[in-house]
């Protein structure tokens, strides 16, 4: 090994002379970080520029003129505003419904041993492991018979599919992480099973459940394929409207709408961060 290494150093070492300079090696991580930042933030920056650009033609590095003129265009469009309203009344309901359905299931997965437990748990992954479009189309044929197509509840149900994974897997992990003796201690001092769940288990699990809720909300909010198939043309949400805007309107309109679409995620993320940081669990409770 050492012979090979020294031979290699002899041949290639001359080319990589700068490797021995400490300053170079120290700046390397920063260069990498900067590259990453450009890769992630670059497109976002361009999006923001487009949203506030009045005119922007090819060779110019920056827009020729800045303007807010495309914003009234977006907010003035009735169907666009309707899509925003639709999104805002669908995603929260989907999240809540998902929580109501999934949290008891997650608790059962975490705490009880029953036949078929693993298979059931994996089955919630399966919805995400196949191309969704095929699943949605077969669900759509079912929805036709049930008269759920182009209805509010049809859209809610189809968006629910994408949230199941988050609302079961993350809370199940959270519940499993809560030591049983915390619950047993509550039973021991006189709390019933239900009271123990609501006053002990649920509050302790809250940070994990909030994260799950956040993911579920974003999954519902950003869902486009299923909503397009089930909801259109009567029930259009923001991500579906995005297709129309990108295809039929000037570029800045799509950019403005993109920013609107990002806002809820951004607000929720900041909110969750605050909540989690204030949380007692972040304080590192150990014994």
């Amino acid at each position: 090994m050492t012979a090979v290494a020294s031979a290699l150093r002899e041949r290639v070492g001359g080319l990589l002379w700068f490797w021995s300079i400490g300053a170079f090696r120290r700046t390397l991580p920063w260069l990498f970080l900067a590259g990453l930042a450009v890769f992630i933030l670059g497109p976002l920056l361009s999006l923001i520029l487009w949203a506030f650009a009045g005119q922007w033609f090819y060779p110019a590095l920056l827009p020729d003129e800045f303007s807010l003129k495309w914003w009234p265009v977006v907010f003035g469009n009735r169907s666009v505003v309707a899509s925003i309203q639709n999104s805002l009344v669908t995603a929260p309901v989907v999240t809540l419904l998902s929580a109501v359905i999934c949290l008891p299931a997650a608790y059962a997965f975490a705490r009880f041993q029953f036949p078929g437990r693993r298979a059931l748990l994996l089955s919630f992954l399966s919805a995400n492991s196949f191309p969704k479009i095929g699943l949605y189309i077969s669900i759509a044929t079912l929805f036709y018979r049930l008269h759920l197509m182009t209805t509010y509840w049809g859209v809610v149900l189809i968006q629910l599919v994408g949230t199941l994974l988050f609302m079961i897997w993350i809370p199940a992990g959270t519940f499993r992480g809560i030591n049983r003796s915390l619950e047993e201690a509550a039973r021991d001092v006189g709390a019933s099973g239900l009271r123990t769940f609501f006053q002990i288990t649920l509050p302790i699990a809250m940070p994990g459940l909030l994260v799950a809720g956040l993911f579920a909300f974003l999954a519902a909010f950003d869902e486009a394929q299923g909503t397009l198939i089930v909801g259109s043309p009567n029930y259009i949400t923001m991500p579906v409207m995005m297709y129309t805007l990108v295809l039929n309107y000037p570029q800045p309109v799509g950019a403005v709408f993109s920013i609107l679409l990002t806002l809820p995620s951004l607000v929720l993320l900041l909110l969750a961060q605050r909540l989690l940081r204030q949380g007692y669990l972040a304080a590192g409770y150990t014994l």
Binding site: N179, S181, L182, E184, A185, D188, I200, P203, Y285, L287
Partner: peptide
């Protein structure tokens, strides 16, 4: 009418 003290994770952190 019994009260138990557990090995660990006794106190409710919240």
């Amino acid at each position: 009418p019994t009260a138990m003290v557990f090995q660990r994770f006794n106190l409710w952190p919240h």
